[in-house]
Amino acid sequence: MADEHRVPIRSEADVLTARHRGRELGALLGLSSTDLILVATAISELARNILQYAGKGEVTLRVVNRGRHRGLEIVASDDGPGIPDVARALEDGYSSSGGLGLGLPGARRLLDEFEIHSEPGKGTVVRGTKWAPDVAD
């Protein structure tokens, strides 16, 4: 199992690829079937954001360790216009209305850890992690 899986996001077919890769890695880590769907859905939201607001970018999937715990780290990055007000973008009002729907607050709710770095003109990096259950059977 490679350390890092980079999926370039240039078209919606790539969104599906990224989702699929996330599911594969998640399954290897022992994520529950529910968690696998959460991961795939989060990747879908983040990858679509890239397409919609930056045109292209990249999703990187990595297995991470913290002491005894293993997790799947998802990094969605692009060189797009950036988000002027990150705090506001993470507010709930933007999510399910179907309008501006950045999908960020939603993606955050699907993952265990979540952080976002973005500045206008400097692109956006979203990093989230889903931790696997403590002990493997």
């Binding site: 529910t34 696998l36 959460l38 859905t41 999510s95 399910s96 999908g103 939603g106 709710r109 699907l110």
Partner: peptide, 15 residues
Amino acid sequence: VRPEVAFSMVRLGLT
């Protein structure tokens, strides 16, 4: 709608 998908949707805030 599958159980996991339903779960994921409400977490996302979709109805």
